[in-house]
Design a protein around this nucleic acid. Structure first.
Length: 433
RNA sequence: GCCCGGGUGGUGUAGUGGCCCAUCAUAUGACCCUGUCACGGUCGUGACGCGGGUUCAAAUCCCGCCUCGGGCGCCA
């Protein structure tokens, strides 16, 4: 289809061939309109029954909605047409007919449940709102990659089939690997750390992670996209700077390059976050949560932040913010404690007012401390020897973080359900399509 | 893992014991209509998740199953 013209490019005076989907047919009697939709938009095709070939009219007016059609004809300026132009057809061809009854309505006149939409994602993505989300998602990934490159990172890809998890076995999907026990990787954590000791020093990865948790919420997936960063000779504060830059770059990229999509989704004043993200210590965070009076029970030092507390604090802060200096006991063993206070971790979270987006920290790079950490967690250090032994050959101090890609898109666009931000989500009950 | 709430034409819904061979919208079929842009009009088509039970009577109440959504925990 070399000579195909996009509907958006059809100019008055041109003779064109457009190809796309029959969005709607409006038969008014002596005149009928066929609206053809492609990825760039829609164009109206006019059928004046008395003045046109009967077969041509017959074909054009009897097309089922959502059939793939190809229309050739002259583009004419017409102020009564929705886009100001319309095609007077010379030839209409049904390239691929659609059943008259559709499993959902791509014209959006009737809503569909998220479940129906996911079962029929192809049709769902014919709606411009659904499509806009994924165009924005693509822009987020592009902007993030560019920012990482500005930070002198090398993009890496690490294995998704692994012999051991990061923090234990319970939340991993087990698989059989040529008769051997193996798992789907829940995080590139260990591998990216190994890279900071390599000649690469500073790396990022955007890839899938797998979590076997049986949660059932609008913000969890069993297969998610993790945006990971790790750098040698960084402390937790440097890592937070990088994190802020990447999140901001994502917003700026979307603000700059996705005007049309934002409009489609109903955003009139989408703006990238301005100013630095506030950095609250864990202690400040629990104090502020307690002060809101939203929780039935006051939080004490060492408690994890309950969802309700996150929401209360998020509402108060009203923008992205970091929570730093967590109690060591509730952060993973591979995160380094402060040198002057072993009860305090260098771990940090980046929060959107509505949920956690990022988890990171400075890593434990000292071999003895690392091995001791494994033992304290009840993990067998021997099982992680591929990892720990590299800490014997010059592992620099380093820090990094992991950002939930879908959560970034979800919070950016205010989506109700994280599944909206994944083409084919994997959740507790959904394995197909 | 614990705890809630749903499943009614293709799609989205109304209906909480008889007024229901089930409402409305959209879709779909036929006919009418020469400027629609959620086109309009007339007449049709099409559904109570599955199995069992209670009752004179069940979409509606009860039990089991299947299925979907959500809250918490945990996390990205």
């Amino acid at each position: 289809m070399e000579n195909r013209t996009y509907t958006a490019d059809a100019e008055p005076g041109d003779t064109v061939t457009v190809a796309g989907w029959a969005h709607e047919i409006r038969d008014l009697g002596g005149i009928a309109f066929l609206i053809v939709r492609d990825t760039t938009g829609k164009i109206q095709v006019k059928f004046e029954k008395d003045e046109m070939d009967d077969d041509l009219v017959e074909t054009g007016v009897n097309v089922n909605r959502e059939s793939v059609v190809q229309v050739s004809g002259a583009v004419e300026e017409e102020e009564r047409a929705p886009t100001g132009v319309e095609i007077v057809p010379e030839d209409v061809e049904v390239v691929a007919p659609a059943d008259p009854e559709l499993p959902l309505d791509p014209s959006g006149k009737v809503d569909a449940d998220i479940s129906t939409r996911l079962d029929n994602r192809t049709l769902d993505l014919r709606m411009e709102e659904s499509k806009a989300i994924f165009e924005i998602r693509a822009e987020v990934l592009r902007a993030v990659r560019e920012q990482f490159r500005d930070l002198n990172c090398t993009e890496i890809n690490t294995p998704k089939i692994v012999a051991t998890g990061t923090e234990g076995g319970t939340e991993l999907f087990p698989i059989t690997y040529f008769g051997q026990e193996a798992f789907m990787n829940q995080s590139p954590q260990l591998f990216k750390q190994l890279m900071v000791g390599s000649g690469l020093e500073r790396v990022f990865e955007i890839g899938p992670i797998f979590r076997a948790e049986e949660h059932n919420t609008p913000r969890h997936l069993n297969e998610a996209t993790s945006i990971d960063f790790e750098s040698a000779f960084y402390d937790h504060s440097d890592a937070m700077d990088a994190c802020e830059a990447v999140v901001r770059a994502a917003y700026e990229g979307v603000a700059e390059n996705c005007q049309e999509q934002l409009e489609t989704l109903g955003y009139e004043d989408f703006e990238a976050p301005s100013g630095d993200f506030p950095r609250l210590t864990y202690e400040e965070a629990i104090e502020r949560i307690n002060a809101t009076g939203e929780l039935d029970e006051q939080l004490v030092w060492g408690d994890d932040l309950p969802t309700e507390g996150e929401h209360a604090l998020g509402e108060e802060v009203g923008e992205h913010y970091f929570i730093t200096d967590w109690p060591s006991e509730i952060k993973p063993f591979y995160i380094k404690d402060h040198d002057d206070d072993e009860t305090l971790s260098t771990g940090f979270d980046l929060m959107h007012p509505s949920m956690e987006l990022v988890s990171g920290g400075q890593r434990e790079h000292r071999y003895d401390h690392l091995v001791a950490g494994f033992e304290q967690q009840g993990l067998d250090p021997d099982a992680f020897e591929y990892y720990t032994k590299m800490f014997k050959y010059g592992m620099p101090p380093h820090a990094g973080w992991g950002l939930g890609g879908e959560r970034l898109v979800m919070t950016m666009l205010g989506l109700d359900n994280i599944r909206e931000a994944v083409l084919f989500p994997r959740d507790r009950q959904r394995l197909s399509p």
